[in-house]
Design a protein around this nucleic acid. Structure first.
Lengths: 300, 300
DNA sequence: CTGCTCAATACCTCCAGGGTATGATCCAGC
DNA sequence: GCTGGATCATACCCTGGAGGTATTGAGCAG
């Protein structure tokens, strides 16, 4: 059996007349007669009663008509859905993120993506930089977000944006009295650093800036992410350099202060990574959205 | 697209290797390659990633695989169901019956049919002889049951069985004192006759028997069926000749008595009727069951 | 009986599905 | 680094079957 047989059968059943059905199918009558005969023979069932006025469905034919219509509709639907999936408009996108990325850029980006591709199910996985790379290679995720990413042979990097830095200070701390803190002043206060895990990381960046400014930071704690860091600031463990977006975290007893006299390149980046050989239309769709987001962002 | 494409696609998706899939499909590798390419081209979607180790499904391919399997299963199911319908094992059988036929033969017959063809839905319609014939011609029913059926040009008749007759009498009636009633004794008592409607009917039969026995019956009432007749007997309207199976009706105040000295051929038949040109496998299945029932019945 | 309307049959053509042979890549092992 | 094996892709041929035209056969109405 063949989808053609179903199409022909439905036409004949609906027209109740081989000639008209043939016209509707843009073929001539004899081939259609033969196809119907073939179908009946293959099924071993009489589907039509031939009358001098046309073709009339048998009971078995009635049943087969329902089934045939159903199958044809499903084929239609399958092609349509597959095409949408092929255009990246349908499917599932697994995204690796890190703790504090959720604070600013990622939600906006994902919102933009959802608006463009509402039928793509986005699944977020919190994981470290190293875990993200492993997950990418194992295809458990399609894109990952992190900071300070170095390109690799098989992993591509695309910078999404940059953020400035603030210092998070306990509210009753002496430094909190000033509206702006000079970077060098940080040297006298214990500092909370993050993230733990694979180096080089933001920690090395911070230590580098201190060194450039002529001092060694007093390291109080190393913690997993900015959220934990700010929580420890609230508990009085020290001060903590955080990206601008951390101001979303309004812990009681924590204030954020801008910095002056900062070392050059006093920024952190946010980048996304993906498998270079990934041809998935979903990735393409997502990267396109990322691109639009970057240019949109720069306009502000 | 074609069911072949689906079959091939599923094979390749499952084997993840065109060569092995081709072997499984008993074709050679190049045509299979082409069919897959055609499918991809027709859908406009890349379904596989070609690797040096074989074929790997894309996300769109995964989705299409599900759909394809589903469609193939439905096609399978559709052919199977249609074949069962073509053998009369699946479908709906509309049966015309008359009031009192439900008392004996019909339930047994339908039970036998249900056992043989459990997936055929039997729908009963109570209608008169004339209505049955009209309904047969209009295809509203496939078989009808009645008594004293004459064959027609387009309607076939098949006798299912015969029944003897009893007389239903009010319990305190003088005749009720005798264990057996002589037929000629009926002449002195008002008689309830049935059925109303198309003649000739059982009424003419009864009048004929009376005439043969040398008397005119005193007609008390003409009613629709045996059930109503016996109900009127209980109410004292007279006596009523009924088929044996009417003893199923145990009205308080009604007794049944056998008859002696009866006229020749003192029997009623039960027959079924059907459209002579009906080739439906359901009818064939039913008539086969009727046949088995008749021979089974005669053995008793 | 004739003309009309169906479906079925006979016969032809040509394309597409299947076959064989070969190419293009990639990887493993010497 | 070359060679052999595995895999998919390409080139080309052949044949079955889908589709076409012409015709027959069978009911039915006038």
């Amino acid at each position: 059996m063949d989808l053609r047989h179903l199409r022909y059968f439905v036409a004949v059943a609906e027209e109740e007349n081989i000639g008209r059905a043939a016209a509707r199918l843009h073929i001539s009558q004899p081939p259609l007669t033969r196809q119907i005969q073939q179908l009946e023979e293959e099924l071993g069932v009489t589907l039509f009663i031939r009358t001098p006025r046309g073709m009339e469905l048998t009971q078995a034919g009635e049943l087969f008509l329902e089934e045939a219509r159903n199958i044809r509709a499903l084929v239609e639907q399958a092609t349509e859905r597959t095409q949408r999936a092929g255009q990246g408009k349908l499917g599932r996108l697994d995204v690796g993120i890190f703790g504090s990325a959720i604070l600013d850029a990622i939600p906006k980006l994902l919102l933009a993506f959802r608006n463009r591709y509402p039928d793509v199910k986005v699944v977020l996985h919190t994981m470290t930089k190293a875990e993200q790379i492993e997950a990418l290679r194992q295809r458990r995720i399609t894109v990952g977000f992190n900071r300070m990413l170095a390109p690799l042979d098989d992993i591509g990097v695309c910078q999404v944006g940059t953020e400035g830095l603030l210092v998070a200070i306990q509210a009753d701390h002496p430094l909190a009295r000033q509206p702006v803190v000079r970077f060098a002043e940080l040297q006298h206060h214990p500092m909370i650093l993050f993230p733990t895990g694979a180096r080089p990381s933001f920690i090395d960046r911070v230590i580098g800036w201190c060194t450039e400014s002529g001092f060694q930071p007093q390291i109080s704690q190393e913690v997993g992410d900015a959220v934990t860091g700010v929580a420890l600031v609230a508990s009085g463990f020290g001060i903590c350099l955080v990206p601008d977006s951390a101001t979303t975290l309004q812990f009681p007893g924590v204030v954020y202060r801008a910095l002056s006299d900062t070392p050059p390149n006093f920024l952190v980046d946010l980048s996304c990574i993906y498998r270079k050989d990934d041809q998935s239309p979903l990735l393409a769709a997502f990267m396109e959205t990322v691109d639009a987001f970057r240019t949109g962002d720069r306009k502000h």
